[in-house]
Design a protein around this nucleic acid. Structure first.
Lengths: 254, 254
DNA sequence: ATAATGCCTTCCGTAACGTCAAGGTCAATG
DNA sequence: CATTGACCTTGACGTTACGGAAGGCATTAT
């Protein structure tokens, strides 16, 4: 049995464009090409196409599928297991997204009082301010008291949407930290991402960023009981882990 | 406070390319452009950027975000609710994928005996064959007994991977049907997709497709107790629903 | 013979940027 | 003061898996 593009397309439920594309990327070549340039597929190609579509339905990329169908000795099971891991990871991220969206909706409906959260946020702001006092002398000399006051005013003037963004960043830091803790390596990509996010978060409170102040704040996370208790809430040793990550991130060691 | 692209990028944790892109698509324009063409952003733009990033973190498309930030009267809550729906839908599809991948892995490990499934598959083959006997006369006249025998041989010769693909298609039909049943409309997109998938599935058993035979088989799904019981397993009336969908799909009414 | 399909290649468009490349601008340094 | 190095600009291509359209032969049906 021989098939032209449209015949095969109808047989398999795909477009002719798709078949031409699969030819182009060397995923499925026709058995032969007629004198007038028509692609002619045989039964072997039909089988191969079904295999391709089978894996495509499982959400695999064509590149991955190409590796699978290229040689029959390829470890399909291993590929499937790795593919499942990716999917499960995607599902986890999607869960996180949905949870965040729902929180935002709840917030917009006023169903969340935010008192608890705000309590700690206010507390954090105070600590950040103290830290600035402690390490901000050079900044003060550089920019004067006015700049500092302006920064403080910035916190007070925060719009609801900036506030939402700050809360969001705090959540992201928490999520990244929890994941990074599993690697146990403060130099890992995830841990460094957490440190970068922490900097982002800080930028809402500081008008000028300095590595030294950031590193100093990180140390304070460990020294201060209240901070440590908060960060270690989910997992013991998170405060230290975050400090180490930030020290590596800033390149400043105490 | 004024910012160039890099300053603002570092402040917000995004690349300069992203800022230029946001300018290009009119999502975030600089406050002004310097005489030498540099983009200069002000505090208003910083705030707007934070709002943009907030919604971006929730997985929204930039196009959707543009609508949200363009005018402050936009119903953000409604947008969030619709966004959540899309995300939940994505999660459902992802769950389906994961389930299918896991089934495939289990199958490759031989953990699924397939006896139950194969029992029904064998049963289906028998019925399909009967159907062909019943409606295949015209085909028989057209192509001769040889073609029919060849088709039957095709079923017997099915490779494990074709078999997997057939099973996959059957699963997809089931999933599409279950969803389509909720609309209650056999002409709905989902129901028609189910009918199209059913045709795909049939192509593994038939060597020649005819609308009349397809429609006839659909009617048999309702008339035959065993078929009806199988399809109505999940939901009462599925067999009738599938028949109606296929009759609409083929344009053949009995 | 002609009209209707069917096939071909080539190119643009999609989302949200990353990554060069070529060239102008600005601040600081020798 | 010239030069370096950091920073800025536009422009263009690459990414995924095709959809769609244009323009031009080939085959088939009437």
């Amino acid at each position: 049995m021989e098939y032209t593009v449209q015949k095969l397309g109808k047989l398999a439920g795909i477009s002719t464009r798709t078949l031409r594309y699969y030819d182009e990327i060397d995923l499925l070549k026709p058995a032969r090409v007629s004198s007038s340039g028509y692609r002619i597929y045989g039964t072997k190609e039909v089988d191969r196409l079904q295999v391709i579509l089978f894996y495509r339905e499982l959400g695999m990329s064509l590149d991955e599928i190409k590796r699978i169908v290229r040689d029959p000795l390829f470890d399909r099971k291993q590929a499937l297991i790795e593919h499942r891991m990716r999917l499960v990871d995607q599902r986890r991220q999607l869960d996180q997204l949905i949870s965040n969206v729902e929180n935002t909706i709840a917030f917009s409906e006023g169903r969340i009082t935010m008192t608890d959260k705000d309590k700690f946020v206010g507390f954090k702001q105070q600590m950040v301010h103290e830290n600035e006092q402690k390490y901000g002398e050079e900044i003060r000399e550089k920019y004067g008291d006015e700049a500092i006051d302006q920064a403080n005013q910035k916190v007070m003037d925060m719009t609801p949407e900036e506030h939402a963004r700050v809360t969001q960043l705090a959540d992201e830091i928490k999520a990244a930290l929890a994941q990074a803790m599993q690697t146990g390596d403060p130099a890992s990509d995830l841990a460094q991402k957490a440190a970068a996010l922490h900097k982002q978060w800080l930028m809402f409170y500081w008008n000028e960023y300095s590595k030294e102040a950031h590193a100093g704040l990180a140390q304070m996370y460990v020294d201060d009981e209240r901070f440590k208790a908060h960060y270690d809430q989910q997992q013991e040793g998170t405060a230290e882990f975050l400090r180490d990550a930030i020290h590596l991130f800033t390149g400043v060691k105490k």
